[in-house]
Design a protein around this nucleic acid. Sequence first.
RNA 1: UACCCGGUAGUGUAAUGGUAGCACAGCAGAUUUUGAUUCUGCUAGUCAAGGUUCGAGCCCUUGCCGGGUAACCA
Length: 570
Amino acid sequence: MSTPEEKTPTDFIRTIIQEDNNTGKHDGRVHTRFPPEPNGYLHIGHAKSICLNFGVANENPGGLCNLRFDDTNPEKEDVEYVESIKEDVKWLGFDWDDREYFASDYFDQLYEFAVALIKKGKAYACDLPADKMREYRGTATEPGKPSPGRSRSVEENLDLFERMKNGDFQEGEYVLRSKIDLASPNFHMRDPVIYRVRHVHHHRTGDKWCIYPMYDYTHCISDSIEQITHSICTLEFEDHRPLYDWILDELEVFHPQQIEFARLNMTYTVMSKRKLLELVQGNYVSGWDDPRMPTICGMRRRGVTPESLREFCKTIGVTKFNSMTDKVVLENCMRDHLNQVAPRVMGVLNPLRVVIENYPEESTEELEAINNPNDESAGTRKVPFSKVIYIEKEDFMEEPPKKFFRLSPGREVRLRYAYFVTCVDVIKDDSGEVIELRCTYDPDTKGGNAPDGRKVKATIHWVSEPHAVDAEVRLYDHLFKTRDPEDLPDDVDYKTNLNPDSLQVLTNCKLEPCLRDAEVGSRFQFERLGYFCVDHKDSTREKPVFNRTVTLRDSWAKVEKQIQNQPKKK
RNA sequence: UACCCGGUAGUGUAAUGGUAGCACAGCAGAUUUUGAUUCUGCUAGUCAAGGUUCGAGCCCUUGCCGGGUAACCA
């Protein structure tokens, strides 16, 4: 068996870095950064970026990756997000050591650089209101018009900028703009705004500043200050690269290379922070860490392991073309890892009572069960068995179709690690619903083997009634019912694609007794059902709560579908 | 519309100008005290047309299709 994380992926970014190493561009130095804005929780798309940036650093001798918070827009940002981001990056398995930076740490330097730009005649204060500025910027086919402030003297600009900083102006009254090229076909070069006035409190600098630098201006300088060699970002910043380069060239400072890659899109979910925020605030989900969310904390709560998330990021690769990754790829990674590490247990989600008529009344046996067939060192455990047990409702059919191998009247099946049992009677309530089964067992088949060599076609799981732990189990399905929830006409809201059945809560589940002491966050395979994880928020010893991380592969479900689709022919 | 970027099996990705490979999905079979896992086999691809070349997925031209940008957000 191959360990999941041995072969390093290759992609165009790693190729660029390799070439730079070969030519000695940065003396063999590789320094990246992961630069989230602290205005929301990290999601699986960020995981892709984290794995790329930290991964590249880890693969190169002496490589480093900084964690930098891009906190230049105080209106949307908060320390709550800073803390969650740090927790998520750590949980994913990456370490930035002491290299934790904030763009806001550079506000003083950024200010001085802006002054330098003004002195060079490359920046000016502009008092055009926002709508006028848009108008002056021109169109795709017409160049922009110079704003009246464009011809101001250096001295005036210096004075105006200082007064902006001192709070002499209202928001929107003045901005600082770079002086580049109003006729550029690239709108980002038509004198973009680099500072705006905002009289708001910043979560780190407090009320020290009332002017805040814009992203384009801040990001390249932050990269430069931190001696970043490769500044990796997503595709939508391609058009910003000329501006990134222009600023650093004008300032004549260390010049990192910006490289863009395609962000992750995944089926049955949305990835934009705005939409995820909306789902949280509108109570469409229980919070950022709702297990249906594509957020890192949501997936953590659901039971996804960091190993499988990293493996997923490796699998999807890094390219420049927009793609839609199928969610089953993620699920495959989840199963792959959980299959290796998750202990097996038995749990009945939809219990059906079974009385074993010929089993002694007060007797209890301890049967030996294997904890993990893929890991011998996981050992075995004892599972109690008694006269009354629960089995899964789905494991019984009164009138079974041909390919149904499980229990039905008169049929014999194996109870895993226990005995062969045969159904001898079906008890129904007034409405005709099956509420109890009567079975007999064969004492010679203890442990699950028949001395006479006879075979059964099915082995089913079970839980002893007097020993059962009552639990709540939450089953999750896609958050959205369509593969691409955002693929809609302009006038239709994506929320109409929300899947009304994405959460199913089962409150009458019966679990084997060892699960009473399961630690919060621990993960198990409920045999024949899937992987489950103890919910870290709502689970208590008295009332355990489990989240289903992912189901097992289910080839029976396919057969079942075929049967349903085939019209019964006589 | 202008500018920028991109198009390789169903999906996601590989291939110094030299045999188009891998994974997931799908299909078929073997093993199985989980209809799981594991194993074996199969299916299926270079957007189009020209050009350069002994040879093009890769280089050039044109077209087609898809995405991005046109915030005092990042």
